[in-house]
Design a binder for these strands. Structure first.
Lengths: 194, 194
DNA sequence: GTCTATACCGAGATAGAC
DNA sequence: GTCTATCTCGGTATAGAC
């Protein structure tokens, strides 16, 4: 598994272009010229555009799952609230800065019609990874029969914050993230008092 | 302004197709055959595909703004909490059932590259409509210097709930909406107690 | 305004030499 | 594995008759 094989470089270039311009919006010519080869040479490595796309998406899916697990482990010694906050922040940065995040979300929301089933299969496990990892944090801070409610609210927070990455400047976005987090965590704490 | 003019029917068909398959994924042949005319006839009404697209988007933008205002007015006699909850629900249904919602969000998140600037200009006022309308509700329930924090959290809730429309079944989605709402409104109430 | 016919282009994909 | 040359298809768009 060489890291600099042409195969790998094609995937890297394709990742960026698919993320920015979508599946239909990206042409094989674009990809080939980004890699520095001619279009037909791509077919020595992938048997079709869709085949290449699935290769890219698979890589992205694996990377995101690893990212989530790694990020939570980084703060496994801290209190649950800090862990949740840390994940919220890291997740936002990942989605903002990394082409991985961009393409991940684009394909979750608006997959190319012909590949919809494949993509949903591939990403199905991501929800489960999130669930297990976040559950392990939540059961330390709320009663056993309520972690799922907070889980849903937290995932909604992640999704909302993600979406806003596209609309606002980094500063404005940061402000909104903090405000949304504050209301969320107050809601969770109120639970503890009841 | 006839409602059944060919112009209008073209826009209706184009709206549905653009929403489902995106700008690049939709061809003028698709649109023409949906309308029941031949492809070149489209050019009697719109001077290009991009021109048609902008026409559709404009209609969508206006409709969404009107929807938000109308929905809040429907419950203007009720207490603020019910108003917020009502808007959350209606907004979700609008985004789920109406092609308007689908295309609105698709184009906010992933506009076709060449039209990005036009689209962002067109949608800029939506945020302001939301801000004014929701502010008028919030100032009745939280201190004057805190409505903006709750506004940010509420908009994040709307965005998160919207995004999840794509992932989950209606039942699962409804459950998550209720849970997210509960944590949100508890966070807001805790503010009142402090 | 709608049609047929067509121009033009760029897309994805293949053949076959090197 | 990479190239040039080429194929086929479907896209956007235009010309011009009715």
């Amino acid at each position: 598994m060489q890291k600099d094989s042409t195969q790998e470089r094609i995937k890297q270039v394709a990742l960026i272009l698919f993320a920015r311009k979508g599946f239909e919006g990206t042409s094989l010519s674009d990809i080939a010229s980004g890699v520095g080869i001619k279009k037909p040479s791509l077919y020595a490595h992938y048997k079709s555009k869709e085949d290449l796309f699935l290769g890219v998406i698979h890589k992205v899916s694996v990377d995101y799952n690893e990212f989530v697990i790694r990020t939570v482990e980084e703060r496994s010694d801290q209190n649950p609230e800090d862990q949740l906050y840390h994940l919220l922040h890291k997740n936002t940065n990942y989605l903002r800065n990394d082409e991985m995040g961009l393409i991940f979300k684009r394909m979750m929301l608006f997959p190319p019609e012909s590949l919809r089933a494949d993509i949903y299969d591939m990403f199905e496990k991501t929800e489960n990874v999130m669930r297990e990892v976040i559950k392990s944090i939540l059961i330390k801070m709320v009663p056993d029969d309520e972690w799922e409610q907070v889980f849903d609210a937290y995932l909604c927070l992640l999704d909302g914050v993600f979406e806003q990455v596209f609309y606002y400047s980094p500063e404005e976005h940061q402000k909104r993230l903090e405000n949304s987090w504050t209301v969320f965590i107050q809601g969770v704490h109120r639970k503890e008092e009841m």
